[in-house]
Simulated scan of single mutants.
Amino acid sequence: MSLFKRIKRSLTGSIQTDDYKSRVISSNNNETSTTFDPQKPPPEISQRDVDILRDCWNIVQQDVAKVGIITFVGLFETHPDVHDAFMSFRAVNTSELEYKAILRAHALRVMGTVDKCIYRLENRDKLQELMTEMGIRHKNYSVKIEFIDLIGHQFISSIKPSLETVWTDEHEKAWDNLFKLMCYHTRKGMCSI
């Protein structure tokens, strides 16, 4: 059994269901643009989207580390080339315990960024500044710009099971809009250097 599957099993009690696989595959079929025009205006998020995001986030935060790890394990399973972009995971002699600790720490940092973005939706300049700086850092880490769009779909697939009793197309759209906005400013930062 692969390291990813062992980590996922230890978190969820199972590997992945066929339902999970179909969500990942369908989310990968969404169009992901690798071209970026920084002159275009940023994507819009409505007040209704903001309300949905905050309500959902209150639920997701209860198990944020698990959601973050599942997001990255799923991302690495579906896009192994993304795994190689992470400097921390390149060590050949990293034990499974060390790997889990590194993965958890990174996942929590990303979840912290999502948290900051949700609460900065009332002050879009602060959100823009945060994500532009994130883009600059990721460019300095030699992250490919096309990797930036992948995390949103994977995150959405990871939170759906926690929210299945309330999840609607409107929820999906709100989260997709948030990640489009985050990615827009991240890409803008990556293109600025």
Rank of each mutant, 00 (worst) to 15 (best):
81 D>C: 01
64 V>P: 00
51 D>L: 09
18 D>G: 11
57 W>L: 14
63 D>N: 15
24 V>A: 09
68 G>D: 05
77 E>W: 09
87 M>G: 04
87 M>K: 09
75 L>D: 06
47 Q>G: 09
83 H>V: 05
29 N>Y: 13
34 T>Y: 03
51 D>T: 05
40 K>Y: 01
52 I>H: 09
25 I>C: 09
18 D>M: 10
17 T>N: 07
11 L>F: 02
38 P>G: 05
10 S>H: 06
58 N>W: 01
68 G>V: 11
82 V>D: 09
84 D>H: 14
52 I>N: 11
32 T>F: 12
80 P>R: 15
45 I>Y: 06
62 Q>W: 00
77 E>T: 12
22 S>V: 06
85 A>S: 15
46 S>A: 03
28 N>L: 11
47 Q>C: 02
28 N>G: 15
31 E>W: 05
13 G>K: 06
47 Q>T: 09
42 P>T: 14
38 P>V: 03
39 Q>P: 00
8 K>Q: 10
43 P>T: 11
51 D>Y: 02
6 R>Y: 00
65 A>T: 06
8 K>L: 11
87 M>D: 09
4 F>H: 10
52 I>A: 02
18 D>S: 13
89 F>S: 05
7 I>G: 01
77 E>F: 03
44 E>Y: 12
5 K>Q: 06
21 K>Y: 12
24 V>M: 13
83 H>Y: 13
61 Q>T: 00
9 R>N: 05
16 Q>F: 13
49 D>C: 04
8 K>T: 04
84 D>R: 10
8 K>C: 01
12 T>P: 00
25 I>V: 15
79 H>L: 07
18 D>R: 03
42 P>R: 07
14 S>C: 10
31 E>C: 09
83 H>L: 12
44 E>G: 07
24 V>H: 04
78 T>W: 10
57 W>K: 00
57 W>Y: 15
28 N>T: 04
17 T>W: 05
41 P>A: 13
58 N>A: 15
73 V>T: 15
18 D>H: 06
21 K>S: 12
50 V>E: 08
66 K>Y: 00
52 I>R: 05
26 S>K: 12
44 E>S: 10
73 V>G: 04
38 P>C: 01
51 D>A: 11
25 I>K: 12
25 I>Y: 06
22 S>H: 12
23 R>N: 04
35 T>M: 05
71 T>H: 02
34 T>I: 09
9 R>Q: 04
38 P>A: 08
26 S>M: 14
26 S>V: 03
9 R>S: 04
7 I>D: 02
67 V>I: 15
29 N>L: 14
72 F>E: 04
87 M>H: 03
36 F>R: 02
20 Y>F: 15
6 R>E: 07
23 R>S: 11
10 S>E: 14
32 T>K: 14
14 S>Y: 13
87 M>V: 14
34 T>K: 08
81 D>I: 10
46 S>H: 11
77 E>Y: 11
34 T>R: 07
35 T>Y: 08
11 L>H: 08
76 F>R: 03
14 S>N: 14
62 Q>P: 00
41 P>W: 02
7 I>V: 15
11 L>M: 11
14 S>G: 08
86 F>G: 02
75 L>R: 01
30 N>V: 14
31 E>D: 09
34 T>W: 13
9 R>H: 02
83 H>M: 07
27 S>P: 00
67 V>Q: 04
66 K>C: 01
62 Q>R: 13
59 I>K: 12
17 T>R: 08
